[in-house]
Design a binder for these strands. Sequence first.
DNA 1: TCCTACAAGAATTACTAGCA
DNA 2: TGCTAGTAATTCTTGTAGGA
Length: 206
Amino acid sequence: MDSLVSEFYRHYSHLKYNKAVDSFISQTENRKLVEDFLRHPTASKEDHLNEAFKAYYFDIRFTSYVSSSLYYHSVNFDKHIRKYSERHPLTLDNQIGEDGGSYVDLVPDPASDITPFTMYSTLMECLENEELLQAYKTLTDKQKHILDLAYVQELSNTEIARMLGVSQQAVSKTHRKALRRLKSILEKGESINHGNFIRPSQRSEG
DNA sequence: TCCTACAAGAATTACTAGCA
DNA sequence: TGCTAGTAATTCTTGTAGGA
């Protein structure tokens, strides 16, 4: 632990052992903010630091949500496939011998890039988080369509642009606008103090 | 293994057109 | 008049191939 981090935790001992805080401080840009705040603590610098941490913390939660969604979808997809193949066995599923191998194991897998979401037609069918689903519903039809094509059909902006008969830039713009809208709606759902880096009552003035 | 060049996709900027 | 959605031009990012 370096001197900056030690000094920080001396002032804010309640944040010690918090991995999110450690990770936040480890980034050069955030480190500068912390350093600056510790040297010359002011209310505006504290607010700035809190805002930076809120944004960072939101990104962590959003990434965590997406990764857990992918995990659950992959597990469900696997269960679905297994259940289906049990009900509808194919000739290739028959066992070859005593060792448990089947004919399908002998077939090379040229389609190793099969994606679970392609079994859905819209992103709405994939969303399990209620807040995210409600936020998604507030998007315009075009925004929803572009997100569907990008995340369900896994098309690039260029392919979507060709399909919709608009430019790649227009797709990129609509895409990012939709993501910004989702993000802002989800952020509004956050409690005021939930993502604060430093609680106001524990502000250090020296 | 590192460096460089190149390609493709995505993002940004500046501007225009249509609409309420 | 301001907002939204579009475009062209440009820049940025990332992956990859090839050579030293």
